[in-house]
Amino acid sequence: MTDVTPELYLRVTQLLETYGRLIDEDRLEAWAELFTPDCRYEIISRENRDQGLPLSLMLCDSRDMLDDRIYSLRNANIFNIHSDCHVLGPARVEPDAAGLGVSAAYSLFQTNQGGETRLFSVGRYHFRLIERDGTLMIQSAQVVVDTGAILTLLATPI
């Protein structure tokens, strides 16, 4: 991929919109379909990243691990009952020989059953996108959370 055409920018924007919306709609299985089989999904605090420390908050280095995480959420884990609302900033798109580097700021609000909302997390997405059969897919997603002090717990993906 070379130039960032308006068409390409629109496709990236649509992918980011889909990414956030599928989590917000609790369609995590469909969300995982946005990733390639050899994908990597990582949530890491800015604190660790800035110190060059490798520890994540959540790390799935394959689709299998990502699917396991979702399967566990559905069947095993107990966590705060909530809905998510992602608000994404504009994407920065940087093509290179291997694909696309895409980053965007996000805010993630969580709302409980009583309609009480809190700002749960802010940070930045760093995606590697590749084209597979005419579709843009996520090869890797690194979520760098500024909100490294996780409120209560971190169950559903960011």
């Binding site: 949530i43 490798p54 520890l55 994540s56 908050l57 959540m58 790390l59 799935c60 280095d61 691990m65 995480r69 566990s72 095993a76 884990n77 107990i78 966590f79 705060n80 996780i150 209560t152 717990l153 971190l154 169950a155």
Partner: peptide, 23 residues
């Protein structure tokens, strides 16, 4: 170790419930 860290902490597959139980 980094992969196994998925089990512990605030997003831990084994431990996330503790935050909810306390609250």
């Amino acid at each position: 170790r980094l992969r196994k860290a998925n089990l512990a902490g605030p997003a831990g597959l084994v431990s996330m419930e503790d935050g909810e139980a306390v609250e």
